[in-house]
Amino acid sequence: MSGQMNDHSRAPSSNAWLKSYYYLRFAVSAAWVAVAFTVAKNDPPLAAVMLVAYPVWDALANYVDARRAGGLSRNRSQLLNVVVSIVTAIAVAIALGRSMNAVLSVYGVWAVASGAFQLLTALRRWKTNGAQWAMILSGAQSALAGLFFVKMAGGTEAIGIANIAPYAAFGAFYFLVSAVWLSVSGIVRKSPQGVS
């Protein structure tokens, strides 16, 4: 009984953190997409830095989130996401010396893996934080996008950062939806108390 009470008392503060976290993830991803579609697509050095920085940011964000949610040992899917994202950043830096097709292949593999880990994280959080359907959809779509990237990388089409930006844009959208959903849920949860 006390365990259930602790879970319920922890949920509001946990949701407050998640809401801030999702808004931050949205803001950073949206800014990355905006720069990718404008300045970076005509500036290869900037594009290269951004392509390495994106998985680094993902690793950092997952690390901070996992620490706030009880530590990496209690959040294995996020721990794996951190490791995969760091490895991806290194692989992207190496692939940049070969071709953008190689970079896209690396991003494809990363999208599949990180999407699967994000989906697992969302399923786990559903029990404590409520509906995580947007994050589940995001994880599933990330995995599908990764398969598309790998296929596209094997083609002859010219590849640039603008080809990867839509992937980040969808991620930003799902983070925004999740943040708004938590915000609305919090208002609805508080409203009966306010009336009484």
Rank of each mutant, 00 (worst) to 15 (best):
H8M: 12
W110N: 13
I94N: 03
S178K: 01
S99F: 02
Y54R: 13
L137D: 03
S138A: 12
W57V: 12
R67T: 15
S114F: 13
I136R: 04
P44H: 05
A66M: 04
G171H: 04
F148Q: 00
N42I: 06
Q118N: 12
V150K: 01
S178I: 02
A53P: 08
R67V: 13
M50N: 05
S99Q: 02
F173Y: 15
W32N: 05
A116I: 14
A30Y: 09
I90Y: 06
Y107S: 14
V39L: 15
A27K: 05
A172V: 13
R76W: 07
D58C: 14
Y54E: 14
N101M: 00
Y21E: 08
R189M: 14
N75D: 02
A61S: 14
Y21V: 07
V112Q: 04
V195Q: 12
A91G: 01
A145R: 04
L144G: 06
Y63R: 10
P192W: 09
V39W: 10
Y23H: 04
V109G: 10
G194C: 06
A172M: 13
Q193I: 00
H8S: 15
Q118H: 11
Q141N: 07
L18K: 07
F170W: 14
T156I: 11
P12H: 11
P55F: 05
F37C: 12
F173A: 10
S29W: 01
L46E: 03
S185C: 11
S20Y: 05
M100H: 05
L182F: 08
L79K: 10
S2N: 11
F149M: 05
N129E: 15
L147V: 06
L60Y: 15
V82I: 15
R25I: 13
L120V: 10
L72I: 14
A66G: 00
S77E: 03
G70R: 12
P45M: 09
W133C: 12
R125G: 08
Y22P: 01
G139E: 02
A102R: 03
S185F: 08
L147M: 10
V150D: 02
D43Y: 06
A16I: 09
A48T: 03
G194A: 15
S9L: 14
V49D: 05
A93I: 01
G115R: 05
V56G: 02
P44I: 09
A93M: 01
Q132A: 02
I187S: 05
P55H: 06
S142R: 05
M135W: 01
I90G: 02
S13C: 04
I90H: 01
L119Q: 06
S9P: 04
